[in-house]
């Protein structure tokens, strides 16, 4: 077990698992901070994954694939905004509907466009290639973690301070925080909280779209039905745990990503696949339990 954890190829694989959770959670964080209770990240990621494959397949460019995923995510964000913000639907209901919509739409389109059931793989889908960073690469151990990753990993890591700074110092960031805390103050100041929240949903859609792209055209180059496989829910938990603060979110994403990666690795150990599949969720629950206990001790 220990050799396994310190196996460089394990460490090397962690960023691939951290990236989708981190990107989706940062998107969720924008919503959380703006007071939009978006727990439909699962559907956002799944949609992103599908459209990334679509874009890459037709253009042969992973960049355009990622862009397609971003646009699809934004579209879904607009759907969320229409039904939650404008029509006043309950956000939990809208989230559940978004998840079901994404599951249905991706399988439907899979058959309608590619005429396959279950999974679509094709040499025309061009994935993101690992980026090797000259000097970093030669650092022992860490070099293989920090270098040689797909570009979306670097984007995700850079997004952490960027979003932190944005929330602290940008006009829209300040208003997003206000919309989440006391939206009446925005109304009184002549700013519509809904517009602010709409922007947060657009940002969330874009980030989740990228998270999906990481799954389908960076980690692999194919689309499988329901390939988000619960990662959106883990991202939701990460957001709720950290109340949408970027730096703690980064930490939690690393933990969850590492468990995810570990569960992948231990399959080789003869442990039944069902138990390794279960690990991320059980680990998430355990983290929740531990944190709740810790918080309780803090207040007493």
């Amino acid at each position: 077990m220990f050799e396994l954890i310190f196996d460089p190829s394990f460490a090397e694989s962690i960023p691939r698992f951290v990236t989708p959770i981190l990107l989706a959670a940062l998107g969720g964080a924008l919503c959380e901070r703006a007071g939009v209770f978006n727990i439909g990240l699962e559907g956002f990621i799944l949609t992103g994954a599908f459209f990334a494959v679509l874009g890459s397949y037709y253009t042969g460019s992973p960049w355009i694939g990622a862009l397609t995923a971003i646009l699809a995510g934004i579209m879904l964000g607009l759907v969320f905004a229409e039904f939650n913000l404008r029509r006043g639907g309950n956000p939990i209901v809208v989230s559940i509907a978004i998840n079901i919509l994404a599951a249905g739409l991706t399988t439907y389109l899979l058959r309608a466009i590619f005429d396959v059931i279950g999974a679509f793989t094709d040499p025309n889908i061009v994935p993101f290639r690992p980026i090797h960073i000259p000097l970093v690469e030669s650092i022992p151990f860490l070099g293989r973690v920090l270098s040689g990753q797909p570009v979306l990993f670097y984007i995700a890591v850079a997004a952490v301070p960027a979003i932190h700074y944005f929330l602290a110092r940008h006009r829209l960031g300040l208003r997003i925080r206000a919309a989440g805390e006391n939206p009446a103050a925005l109304v009184a100041g002549g700013v519509s909280p809904r517009i602010v929240q709409l922007w947060s949903l657009i940002g969330c859609g874009a980030l989740c779209g990228l998270a999906g792209a990481q799954l389908s055209i960076a980690n692999v180059s194919l689309f499988v039905e329901n390939m988000s496989a619960g990662r959106g829910w883990i991202a939701v938990v990460a957001v709720l745990l950290t109340r949408g603060r970027p730096w703690p979110l980064f930490l939690i994403a690393i933990i969850f990503g590492a468990v995810d990666s570990l569960s992948f690795r231990v399959q080789g150990l003869g442990l039944a696949q069902q138990f390794t599949d279960m690990m991320p969720y059980v680990a998430t629950l355990l983290v929740l339990v531990a944190l709740s206990w810790w918080r309780k001790r803090q207040t007493i």
Binding site: R169, H170, L174, R177, A178, E181, N182, A184, L186, G189
Partner: peptide, 27 residues
């Protein structure tokens, strides 16, 4: 009922909705 954000500083509360920002929107 005060229209304030408890988690923000006094200054942030004062400028909210009338922020002096540069062309990129940074305050």
């Amino acid at each position: 009922h005060f229209m304030l954000q408890d988690s923000m500083s006094v200054l942030e509360n004062i400028v909210l909705c009338s922020e002096p920002a540069n062309s990129l929107g940074f305050i």
